[in-house]
Design a protein around this nucleic acid. Sequence first.
DNA 1: TACTCTGGCTAATTTAAATTAGCCGCCAAG
DNA 2: CTTGGCGGCTAATTTAAATTAGCCAGAGTA
Lengths: 206, 206
Amino acid sequence: MDTKHRILDEALTLFSERGYANVYVGDIAERVGIKAPSLYKHYKSKRAIFEAIIEEMNLRFEEQARSLNISGTSATEDSEIYKKMSETDLTKLGRELFLYYLHDDYTRRFRKMLTIEQFHDKELADIYSKLYVDDPLSYQGMLLGMVAAAGLLKTDDVEIMTLHFYAPIYLLLTVCDRDPKREEYALETLDKHIRQFDRLYGRTGK
Amino acid sequence: MDTKHRILDEALTLFSERGYANVYVGDIAERVGIKAPSLYKHYKSKRAIFEAIIEEMNLRFEEQARSLNISGTSATEDSEIYKKMSETDLTKLGRELFLYYLHDDYTRRFRKMLTIEQFHDKELADIYSKLYVDDPLSYQGMLLGMVAAAGLLKTDDVEIMTLHFYAPIYLLLTVCDRDPKREEYALETLDKHIRQFDRLYGRTGK
DNA sequence: TACTCTGGCTAATTTAAATTAGCCGCCAAG
DNA sequence: CTTGGCGGCTAATTTAAATTAGCCAGAGTA
């Protein structure tokens, strides 16, 4: 019964390394430890496997969004927290975000797969933009907005400030996806970025 | 004779839309206006077409690098120019850079193709990082460094400042590649980004 | 016990893409 | 004017990936 899920898992791994078209159903089967035709007992076609992966990601994502919204809403009341946020906390936030995105196996494989497939059709392009641009900007915008409201960051344009926070993280992430050997460099750069960010937007630093 | 080059051109278009594996030699031939087997009078194999595209890009790139180095070196002497650089000039620079990358047909198609193929092997990953991360950062770092030396930007870490300048441009570029309809939004955001950048790092703005 | 459903297998079958073989017309150079 | 080769074509050929057909074993169940 769990074979069905292992197929998705192995397929995702392969798709993220080579892209859909360069992965053969036989490859997936082999990884799972069965023969290609047996895959069809679980999924109607190769495409169906791909779609099931997207589907599963949607589920996971909605779940995560729900949990973020809950803690997000309650946090709005809790604006005290943000008054105490220091540079160190901000650094920690950025670093954790980055490391989560980078190291979480499911997240990473899915992102790489989507990177390869993003131009295949509009739906995938939209998912990509949503997951790696719009949602992070809006979520972090909310957080930074609250920090700003608490007076710890100064700006008259939270959106641009958020872009300044997130864009370097995004760029460094794509670098590490291409070449994991650059992770150390990326982490150093990330720290310097956030420290500088804090100095630029914070009141303390200047 | 010019067929040989038209093949590269049409192949690049198709590869940038669908990726290498989803383009068939027949598709390329059709676009060129010949039949598939005739392609083999010009290139040994489908892979050879791909490699010729990479090869051609290398040539173009080296050429461009040479011309930039020439004007770059002479500009080092000419540091007067940077003393007069205003926010408007910086905005113009960023905007032109962005629009060039976005609209130049060859550049855009090549970038999209590389985006799709970047995980195929290390060579392609390195080309991607070089073209869209390392080179822009080092070139713009040189420019901004001179502007900073002229006293118009203030920072004790030019590299991070350059990352702050370029990362948002990069992010917006990838957004437009996925969805050209967002170009207008991207340009507005870009302007706001650079204005803010200038305010953050410049002396005038604060 | 016999039944049937699940999930595996081997052996086709289908489909199609890449490449090769071999022909032919044109045109430029001898 | 004739020859060589360039660049096109049609008709194979090769290769291989996706999918289907049909068999079978074991597990849970009436």
